[in-house]
């Protein structure tokens, strides 16, 4: 009897597995400087929408292992949905040292926006070539506030592609580099907005 009990215990112990060590990542991190003060003098730019590619619509982090092959990490996942995380990070970067007041589309200030931004994120992942890439397209629309219904004066289409070298292994560093790509995008948008006719 003892032998049977011992055998069962051995069997159960052999079946146990090591718990999966999952890591969570977040793009936008808390910053000390939170620009909650709304400057009335600054023109308001609303980030209307952010559309992300379907293969990015999951919590697993993506690694491009080949030219056409992707790998979803099972242990490294986004703490927040990538879409909203990217959106918040971009909004945060845009408002950093900017001449304009970027607001979300759900913000009450969005009514008086002079410019509208629509973004489509196509790639936002690490590659096995030790890089992180971010590419996509965005549209800038200049609104005429004088008209009653904010008639769109002009719309310009822009594409973006940013790449950054990885200096460390691991997803944590990759996420950090991806975050810098968001900063780059914010800077490019700022420049493009400044070139619009209503600015």
């Amino acid at each position: 009897m003892k032998i049977i009990t011992i055998c069962l215990c051995i069997l159960l112990i052999s079946c146990t597995s090591e718990p999966l060590n999952v890591r969570y990542y977040l793009l936008h991190t808390p910053q000390k400087k939170v620009d909650t003060k709304s400057d009335v003098a600054k023109p308001i730019v609303v980030v209307q929408s952010l559309k992300i590619a379907d293969y990015l619509r999951q919590s697993n982090l993506v690694l491009q292992v080949d030219e056409y092959e992707l790998h979803y990490s099972r242990q490294d996942v986004w703490a927040e949905e990538l879409g909203s995380s990217f959106y918040n990070a971009l909004l945060q970067d845009l408002n950093t040292n900017s001449q304009r007041n970027y607001v979300a589309s759900s913000s009450p200030e969005a009514i008086g926006a002079t410019t509208t931004i629509n973004i489509k994120l196509e790639h936002f992942h690490a590659t096995d070539a030790s890089t992180v890439v971010s590419s996509g397209r965005y549209w800038l629309s200049a609104n005429d506030l004088k008209t009653a219904k904010n008639k769109v004066l002009a719309t310009s289409s822009h594409s973006f592609y940013f790449e950054s070298q990885l200096k460390q292994d691991g997803y944590s560093h990759a996420v950090e580099k991806l975050r810098t790509l968001v900063v780059n995008l914010a800077n490019q948008i700022e420049k493009d907005i400044a070139a619009l006719p209503n600015n």
Partner: peptide
């Protein structure tokens, strides 16, 4: 039951180790 659940783990590598 009979796997440990980890399997081969792919992670991005730094430029020198790629």
């Amino acid at each position: 039951i009979f796997t440990n659940g980890n399997g081969p783990r792919l992670i991005p590598k730094a430029k020198a180790n790629s």
